[in-house]
Each structure stands twice: as C-alpha cells, then as structure tokens.
C-alpha cells in the first residue's frame, strides 16, 4: 500500500481543498480585475481536482483521475475563450474592470 494513504487521513485532503476553494471564492468576490477573477476560478477548479485525485488514490479507482483530466481539458478551453472575450472587452472599454460591466442592470 502507498505510504501516503496509510499515514494521512482523507479528512486532511478534504479540509485542504475546502480551504483552497474558499480562497478562490474570496478572490472572485473582492477583486475587480477580470483577469484575476479568471485566475481565482482556475484556483477553485484546482481545489476540486486535487480532491478528486485524492479520493481516486485512496479508493485505487482510476475513474477519478480520468475525471480530473477532463476537468483540465474544460479549464483550458474556458481560459482560452474567456481571455478572448476579455481582450475584446478591453478593446471596447479600455479597461478590464468588471464593475463597469453592469449594463444589464440598468
């Protein structure tokens, strides 16, 4: 058996990735630069990935790690399209401040 899963209980991984996820949410709520908000979303995705990989190793089931692989695929696609949209927004408004983008509210 792997030494890691004998020594470290799974609760540590759960608490650890919960903490990372909450830091990501805090960043999304406090930052106004849209690029940093996208980076915080990447951090949240990574917290979920880490927990999936941990459970996959503890149960010695490969499906969790395949799921992590597909989440990485979706994260890469999301970053490409999101940054394309951001560059377009910057061309039109000369800023990446997300609090300028509340036209739907008015």
């Amino acid at each position: 058996m792997l030494e890691t899963i004998r020594i470290i209980p799974i609760e540590h991984y759960v608490l650890y990735s919960t903490l990372l996820f909450v830091i990501g949410i805090f960043g999304v709520l406090t930052r106004r630069n849209a690029i940093v908000v996208l980076m915080c979303i990447e951090l949240m995705l990574n917290a979920v990935n880490l927990l999936l990989a941990a459970f996959s190793t503890y149960l010695s089931d490969a499906q969790g790690q395949i799921m992590v692989f597909f989440i990485m695929v979706v994260a890469a696609a999301e970053a490409a399209v999101g940054l394309g949209i951001l560059v377009m927004i910057y061309r039109n408004t000369k800023s990446t401040d997300i609090s300028l983008l509340d036209k739907l509210r008015h």
Binding site: M1, L2, I5, I10, E11, V14, L15, T18, L19, F21, V22, I23, I25, F26, L29, A53, F55, S56, T57, Y58, L59, S60, D61, A62, Q65
Partner: peptide, 30 residues
C-alpha cells in the same frame, strides 16, 4: 461570506466521510 462558506463546508464534511480503503490497494493506479 467566504468565512461562512468555509465554516459550513467544514462542519458538513467533518466526520461524515466513511471511506472503506480497500486492503489490497493498487499503488500503480495513477
């Protein structure tokens, strides 16, 4: 907000995980 979320998640998840780690776990799964 994020502190409340942290407290809620930790309170909900702590002690609720009953994981049956298989005895003959395969270390080459990854």
């Amino acid at each position: 907000t994020s502190g409340l979320l942290l407290v809620t998640l930790v309170g909900a998840l702590k002690g609720s995980i009953q994981l049956q780690v298989p005895e003959s776990s395969n270390p080459s799964v990854g």
